[in-house]
């Protein structure tokens, strides 16, 4: 028992934070193992950032306990700060300074001499493909460059835990992939990562375990496959060539997939929530043997929307509106 405790990087019990009437975080329990990537998934206003701010000593919890690497975040804040790094949702950089000046400043604050800080800055800027922009002011960086510099600044001294608040929100696909690669290499090198995201895809790609959070509460927790199993494998989208054949096709799909199918407003389209990938292959052969020609056949990953629909019975948009209404 004590052994498993030591392996926990982060442990929270009943963490609560409210701002006036709004219970931003409402009893969150998390346990994150060392050396893993933990994803906190939820829509805007779910309490992700507030949770991270409490874990990184920026906010005091109103109730509950939070331990980071065995240290209480409020009592041993300084011990926690020596072991963690935060990459905030909005770049935690000085926009007025250049990339290198940011690196040297933060390196100096961490205790490096000016020379060491410069060396380390150079090393990291090169590794993050920012050496050409080293002398430019950060305010002139693109979103992806800013993100990379932000992460580089967070690992000047390799932290035991890195907190990343929505590390890829607003990035183009190429920059997003770069950030993902960096996160994976960080974990390989021994750092524990806790990241928040609005994208199921991102949590799926990176996280060993995921907590789905909504209205300040954890509403589901598990590995990505466990979560997906609870929402089905995704949505099948079929487009037939002949609108006359749609009803027949719908019957076949219903039989093969063993689920209800929906007929879209487009007279050629059929959609279905798939519970098991294996059935999809069968559906395709059944359609072919019935001589129904299809022009499009795709199986999408379940979206965050679908996860939320299944877990809460409400789509994300309603949740966001509700959350905004509460403020």
């Amino acid at each position: 028992m004590s052994n498993s405790k030591e392996e926990l990087a982060i442990e929270t019990v009943g963490l609560v934070k409210h701002f006036g009437e709004n219970r931003a975080v409402d009893g969150v329990d998390l346990s994150v193992k060392k050396g893993t990537i933990y994803g906190v998934l939820g829509p805007n206003g779910a309490g992700k950032t507030t949770t991270i701010r409490m874990l990184t000593t920026l906010l005091k919890a109103d109730a509950g306990k939070a331990k980071v690497l065995g240290f209480d975040v409020s009592k041993d804040a300084d011990q926690v700060r020596q072991r963690i790094s935060l990459t905030g949702q909005f770049a935690s950089l000085d926009e007025d300074l250049s990339g290198m000046e940011n690196m040297v400043m933060i390196g100096r604050l961490l205790g490096f001499t000016r020379k060491e800080a410069k060396q380390r800055g150079q090393e990291l800027l090169t590794a993050f493909d920012l050496q050409d922009a080293a002398k430019r002011q950060v305010k002139n960086y693109s979103g992806g460059m800013r993100r990379r510099l932000d992460i580089a600044a967070s690992i000047i001294v390799s932290p035991e835990i890195l907190f990343l608040d929505e590390p890829t929100t607003g990035l183009d696909p190429r920059s997003r992939n770069q950030v993902w690669d960096i996160i994976r290499l960080l974990v390989d090198a021994g750092t524990t990562v806790l990241l928040t995201t609005q994208y199921l895809d991102e949590a799926d790609q990176l996280a060993d375990r995921i907590a789905v959070i909504d209205h300040g509460k954890v509403i589901a927790e598990g590995t990505s496959s466990e979560l997906k199993a609870s929402v089905g494998s995704g949505k099948l989208h079929v487009r037939v060539l002949d609108p006359e054949a749609r009803d027949d096709a719908a019957q076949i799909l219903k039989g093969a997939l063993e689920v209800d199918v929906q007929l879209g407003s487009d007279p050629l389209v059929i959609t279905a929530q798939v519970s098991d990938h294996k059935h999809v292959a069968r559906a395709l052969t059944d359609l072919a043997s019935a001589n129904i020609t299809i022009t499009d056949f795709s199986l999408g990953q379940p979206s965050l929307d679908e996860v939320f629909l299944t877990l809460t019975g409400k789509p994300v948009e309603d949740q966001v509106k509700e959350a905004e209404g509460n403020v």
């Binding site: 700060r81 790094s85 905030g88 935690s92 000085d94 926009e95 604050l109």
Partner: peptide, 11 residues
């Protein structure tokens, strides 16, 4: 500015 979040989490 966001940089202050970083300053506050530094030891």
């Amino acid at each position: 500015k966001g940089i202050f979040d970083r300053f506050r989490t530094l030891p």
